[in-house]
Amino acid sequence: MNLHLQRLPSARPGMAFGARVAALVLALLTAAAVLAAAGFAPLDLAAQVLRSTFGSRFGLEDLGLLLTPLIYTGLAVAVGLRIGAWNIGAEGQFNIGAFCAAGVALFVPGPVWLLLPLMMVAGAMGGALWILVPTLARAYADVSELITTLLLNFVALLLVYFVATGPWLDPSGHALATTARLPVAVPEFWGIVHWGFPVAVALALLLAVVFAFSRWGYEVRISGSNPGAARYAGIPVTRHLIGVMLLSGALAGLGGMMEVAGTVGRLQGGISNNYGYLGIMVAVLARAAPLGVLASALLMAVILNGGIILQTQGLTTNTVLAVTGLILLFSAIGDELAHYRVIRRQEKG
């Protein structure tokens, strides 16, 4: 008897899902093995992470706060991927969204019911504006958005550091590197989890519906898959590319607004906390599906939350990055292997 591998043109759904689960398990096992070799007790650590994340209401609320920005940035990257654009700049757009929203909150007087929508618009517009130049460069000069969006991240990050430690520094003198507490906050939804979370989930659902059931979604699908065929069918590919990339920036910017006005309450340097980069991971794991983003963002939030707990045990934050990297690596391998099936063949004679 002889075992052979056979490649199928497309992975079967069951195999694809199984491969993902296996990848996750393998990544965690690898991490556990390394931790065990370093003298930690991985099972205890795992139990502790699970207990403190899911075992109490506080843990769940923390999870919600981590999950919210990951959904926004994950959706931002996923939307871009739909038309074949890699938005590596969600980090920067997130910062700018937070910056614009904080600017409105700090310097525009007005009632909360007016200010909150205004901040949302400002955050989204800020994010869109931040990706505008990379978008136009890609659309009209075929400049890779990969580099341009990435480079603008550093500009945005430094801009926020600058205003938070300089012109917008808390005048009360209590804080060293943040603005004053914003006079307007996103109302709470469940414990300390603010309304940014349900809005994010609603956006994911809305995007899922739009991509599957709208003409625009169909046109974007064709444009992303084969621009040549889209042009042939008279679909305005360039217009869709611009629209989708601006939407991507706006989603990340809105995430920044929710973070500054919901979770943190002040604008401070490093407010993005790598959410933009993690959003890439979230979107890739979700294969750019909006509903998949919800699941992969949850996974990433659990890992991040676990990281915070691991830090109390003397592990560095890099452990978390290593685990997320392992998950991505094993998932990529798993996705490829899901195309294969093992066949048995009877040898003759």
Binding site: R215, Y218, R221, I222, S225, N226, A229, R231, Y232
Partner: peptide
């Protein structure tokens, strides 16, 4: 393959390319 169809998309998506509007 370069302009008549989007090879990675479903047969349905490709079949309606002219009449989806």
């Amino acid at each position: 393959l370069a302009s008549g169809v989007a090879p990675a998309l479903s047969i349905t998506d490709n079949a309606v390319l002219r009449e989806y509007r």
